[in-house]
Nucleic acid binder design. Structure first.
Lengths: 235, 235
DNA sequence: GCCGCTTCGATTGCATACAACCGACTCGAT
DNA sequence: ATCGAGTCGGTTGTATGCAATCGAAGCGGC
């Protein structure tokens, strides 16, 4: 009997960890909009757990910056402002730049091959206009590039920042033109990485990021200036 | 009656937040060495609280990367390896570089004046050889430079990374020569900021950081190669 | 009619109780 | 003597109960 056939984790993960993941997804995917209050009773019923692990999970999300803790009044999903998005992109920029540099120097051929495979899969989804799968692989590729920079701290910080940034990207609408453009950029990024051309990779990553930012800015431009209608905020 | 005279927080902070701070201090200052297991019973007795807020605090520290959660076996203080220190410094480098750039562009004259004051105080402590106070102000100055870059996300990420790095710096011994050198570097850093000379500031910050790294590397060099004696790890 | 105080329901913060799990030890069989 | 199953103390994971707090609605005084 192959050991690999035992796929389901024998040891069930702790509830607080599981719940944190699910809550994180709900927030990142925009199901819980910014400003939404996390009502503990509702959430315990939703997840079928008690308040203890839920509260532990909320504390973790607070440390990740996804929710804000208001003493005696629970937690609310943090807002995404134009300023905060700009700030995050700016940090993202230097992180990706460093990652690109290191990745060119340290990535193994196998690393690059795996990224190329992900890229190929992403291209298929792109051609089929499967936006969600495309997004997921897009994200995965970026993370993999950072991972193979061989700097675990960088990878970790990048991951956390990505999560928060992804919230904005889930909300912003991708135009067809932008999608085509992004795909083209990705082709070039992969090429530069394959050639281990650090300077070019850094430039490409910066451009790519800048274009992402533009998309989000457009979205924020249409949404933010008129926040008169505060979200009713139901959990 | 001046409102500012009400100094003590009217609303007592939640226990989990208070405990998180105290635990963080204990870890950063090296009282809990890497590998130390956090025994919940002992800690609840020590702090005089129940396990609920303690566990919430531990989850927060885990999200900050100060402790590692082992399912069903609690939390242990994360190790500091040569590699992880190097990695953190590398990230620190690009963050400070960005911060320096932005700070030169955005800092108000008042910001700079306040930093200059902190610097003057630090110099006094330096002259009196008051290492702890010097360290505290040193840290504060760096954080203030980053803060006045006007990028809240950057400031936050920088702060978290600083906390983890400070652990290493608490352990490494400062030689008198290095201290003199560091103080001189700080004089130059302040000067560059005052002149809003971004390029120079970035260079100086990079050099300063690099020298810090060297100190830690020396310490790690003496400690790490022979980790045969695993810490007994009492909480 | 408007403002402030009081009361009440709902919610969070904390403490405690119970269950599941881990690791070490004992003890017996080979 | 060594290995393995079984047991037990201690620890962590989860659920629940109680106290403190908040916000809003109700109420009386001006």
């Amino acid at each position: 009997m192959k050991l690999e056939s035992i796929v389901e984790p024998i040891c069930p993960r702790p509830l607080h960890s599981e719940v944190a993941d699910r809550l994180r997804d709900l927030i990142v995917q925009g199901e819980f909009e910014p400003g939404t209050r996390l009502n503990e009773r509702l959430l315990t019923e939703r997840f079928g757990i008690s308040r203890t692990p839920l509260r532990e999970a909320i504390k973790m999300l607070a440390s990740e910056g996804l929710v804000q803790l208001l003493p005696n009044r629970g937690a609310v999903v943090t807002a995404i402002t134009r300023k905060s998005a700009l700030d995050m992109f700016q940090v993202m920029g230097v992180l990706e730049s460093l990652a690109g540099e290191l990745a060119c120097a340290r990535a193994t051929d196998q690393d690059i091959e795996e990224i190329a495979n992900l890229h190929a899969t992403m291209r298929r989804h792109y051609k089929r206009r499967e936006l969600n799968e495309y997004f997921r692989l897009n994200q995965e590729i970026h993370q993999r590039i950072v991972d193979c920079a061989g700097n675990a701290e960088l990878a970790d910080i990048y991951r956390r920042l990505s999560v928060r940034l992804r919230r904005a990207r889930y909300m912003a609408n991708y135009s067809k033109e932008r999608w085509d453009e992004a795909m083209a950029e990705h082709e070039q990024i992969l090429e530069a990485l394959s050639q281990r051309n650090a300077r070019r990779l850094k430039t490409l990553l910066a451009t790519h990021l800048d274009n992402k930012l533009k998309v989000i800015e457009d979205w924020l431009g249409t949404v933010e200036p008129a926040p008169q209608k505060r979200a009713p905020a139901r959990a």
